[in-house]
């Protein structure tokens, strides 16, 4: 996922850079409110944790290994604001010091790996918490699904950027299908690992899971008894569901959406004009099996991501305000239990 320099065109790099800078700016401001002068050591060391976790292999299948991406994990443990900043710093340092991901590609790499995963993942997490029981089991489950979905959102975001910034002729729907397909599988691993990790923290120090700061601590005391099998089953189900939705859109045969378009005559107009003046990269639209349909898919995906990230941003800002009032003057001698003597 660490795209190198020149992978997308310059315009896309600049535009995503501006979006990333804006979102991380909001994250920074909220993080400062949340952590005050503890920001530097706490966020810094948490960033080291996420970075280290990315180097830590876990088993996938038949002895092969994968690693965490950690965007949703950071957002759930630290809150969306601190989480997004922390992951952004990881991505920036990886590019600058480790040459992992291009420096001129930081705009889209930060957007996909930090902004979309942290804010989008957090929005999904909080959304699921409304539906699920507000117990440890519910939180673990919501964390897992949110983390899995965040990886798919990230892949979708990349596909959308491809639509605007392609540098070689692979059409949008091929990229979209491949990216989402692969990341559905990666997402299962990310979900399982994130859910279990959040569960472990919840069992040891529930007060450190910022994503559940407003939940009743007593209700969270149930030992998350969710079995590994149940988890994988749920992950596979969600993946299957997403795959079905995506393949519905990407299928070459006319489906409901296209029928509507054709019946209403939008299709004709769209086919003639959709691409004429659009800012899309020729490479991403060249050879599309069905232009208007692909653009409808892209549009829907764009709306979904924007809504998710927007919801995450709103949650971060609202949370920051609430916290700022609640913890005023508390942080000086706050929860720092600096060792037991």
């Amino acid at each position: 996922m660490h795209a190198p320099d020149g992978f997308l065109n310059a315009g896309t790099a600049v535009a995503t850079g501006a979006i990333s800078a804006g979102a991380i700016g909001v994250g920074l401001r909220q993080a400062r409110e949340q952590l005050a002068d503890r920001q530097v050591p706490l966020a810094g060391i948490s960033a080291a944790f996420i970075f280290a976790a990315q180097m830590f292999n876990f088993p996938v299948a038949a002895g092969t290994t994968g690693h965490l991406l950690g965007g949703a994990l950071a957002a759930i443990l630290l809150g969306p604001a601190v989480g997004s900043v922390v992951v952004a710093v990881v991505v920036i340092v990886q590019a600058l010091l480790f040459a992992d991901g291009g420096v001129s590609a930081l705009g889209y790499n930060v957007l996909n790996m930090a902004v979309v995963t942290a804010f989008g993942g957090y929005a999904v997490f909080r959304g699921l918490l409304r539906l699920l029981p507000r117990t440890a089991t519910g939180v673990v489950f919501a964390s897992g699904i949110a983390a899995g979905v965040s990886v798919v959102l990230s892949a979708t975001a990349f596909s959308l950027e491809w639509l605007f910034g392609a540098t070689f002729p692979v059409p949008f729907d091929t990229v979209f299908g491949a990216m989402v397909g692969v990341h559905l599988l990666i997402g299962i691993g990310e979900g399982v690992l994130t859910g279990l990790t959040v569960g472990a923290v919840l069992a040891a120090r529930p007060d450190l899971v910022a994503g559940v700061h407003d939940l009743d601590r007593v209700a969270l005391r149930d030992r998350a008894s969710i079995g590994m099998r149940g988890f994988l089953l749920a992950g596979a189900l969600v993946a299957l569901l997403l795959a079905t939705v995506v393949s519905q859109f990407a299928a070459p045969a006319p489906d409901g959406l296209e029928r509507v378009a054709e019946d209403t005559g939008i299709a004709e107009v769209a086919r003639d004009h959709a691409l004429a003046d659009a800012p899309f990269a020729d490479y991403a639209t060249h050879g599309l099996r069905n232009e208007s349909l692909s653009l409808a898919v892209a549009g829907t995906a764009g709306v979904v991501i924007t809504l998710a990230v927007g919801a995450g941003l709103v949650a971060a800002v609202r949370r920051g305000r609430g916290r700022g009032r609640a913890s005023e003057g508390e942080h000086e001698h706050g929860p720092a239990r600096a060792g037991v003597g």
Binding site: P41, F58, R205
Partner: peptide
């Protein structure tokens, strides 16, 4: 296999808690 990953995740959770507490001590 992935379903044998629970101990790895528990370890990661424990290391997060220790990291966070270290952050508080450094502060």
């Amino acid at each position: 296999w992935l379903w044998e990953a629970r101990p790895v995740a528990s370890a990661a959770g424990a290391v997060f808690v220790r990291s966070y507490e270290r952050g508080e001590r450094v502060h």
